[in-house]
Design a protein around this nucleic acid. Structure first.
Lengths: 184, 184
DNA sequence: GCGCTCATGTAAAAAGTTACATGATTTC
DNA sequence: GAAATCATGTAACTTTTTACATGAGCGC
């Protein structure tokens, strides 16, 4: 049982999903490719943390829909009671920033402008998701938080984190760009 | 040549360092263990991206001090002209937050309090480092940025990033804690 | 004496990415 | 007709972590 396994169980705690759906939903928190997820799901099923049922579809390929077993739920609760590992971030742009004097202002501007666009795109995605969740009635309309006991509480604070982090990153990137020599 | 290799070259662009120093300096941007760095340095030396000289020490063990070769400098410039890959963050607490309704308020408070302490410690470290760099005269005293051409420009914007990110994370964690049911 | 820092390395295991493989439906 | 999405899987490879290995000096 590694962190990715618990990640899968965490998503399944909300609802049942196919391996494909699990992969998409896990991306924002613990990026993983389908080639890592499918074999893991098979082993989690073998160890009885999850079970699945075959669901035939007419318009799309058939799928396996996975659910948490009692053993899986218990494993999730045990894992939640342990302290969380420290976060790890790897960002190539930070390495490039470190030795930025080895490029020219144009090269630097290209790097930071591309990153700014990336962050802005991410912000739009997060805002769209927040709007969708509000429209769907999953978040209260009055701007208040769902109660702690609700299964929506987690999503609520995570959307807020994504928005804050992305806005902070945008502000920093704009600030860094403003320090670069003006293009002529 | 993978990203970690370029990370090593990026640090060496500032000054020459031992493998041990390189490991420590790389931690904030691209965490890696010494067991990954030493063999990589050997292969970078073999491919003539870096060279080293043996430095005998009386109080501490002898060390190999690595420097960038001309080939290494050119590789660094070529790499800088390419766009940076997207950042990757993996944070176990975000997974735990997602299924937080599967624990009690006490468990949730433990998780977020521990994270808040971690972020506060990190903030102190970053503030200390900023103060040190100012005292050493590496950053201008008046609060302005070093010029873009200076080798300090990169450190300057990276320290600012670390401070902004950590403060934003602290604020979010405090906000999340404030939403948890009061302990009695 | 015990643990920490400095210092370098190798070996094995685990985690993650890329490529190979297939195939229907839908959208441009 | 080409590309994207949904859907699942395996194989090969790269990257990262953990464990094994050694050893001197320093502070408590």
């Amino acid at each position: 049982m590694n962190t990715l396994s618990y990640g899968l169980l965490s998503i399944l705690a909300q609802s049942s999903f196919s391996g494909y759906d699990l992969m998409l939903r896990l991306q924002p928190f613990w990026p993983a490719k389908h080639s890592q997820i499918y074999p893991l799901l098979a082993s989690l099923e073998k160890e009885e943390y999850v079970s699945y049922e075959h669901v035939a579809q007419s318009d799309k390929p058939d799928k396996k829909v996975y659910s948490l077993t009692d053993k899986g739920k218990q494993a999730l609760r045990d894992w939640l009671s342990e302290p969380a590992a420290e976060p790890v971030t790897r960002d190539e742009l930070m390495l490039k920033a470190y030795c930025l004097s080895n490029t020219d202002p144009e090269g630097a501007r290209r790097l930071f402008s591309a990153r700014l666009e990336y962050y802005r795109k991410r912000l739009r995605q997060h805002e769209d998701k927040a709007a969708l969740l509000r429209e769907r009635g999953e978040f209260p309309m009055n701007g208040e938080a769902p109660p702690f006991e609700s299964i929506r509480f987690g999503s609520y604070i995570l959307v807020e984190k994504a928005l804050r982090t992305t806005r902070s990153n945008i502000e920093w990137t704009e600030w860094a760009l403003s320090l670069l020599p003006l293009p002529e």
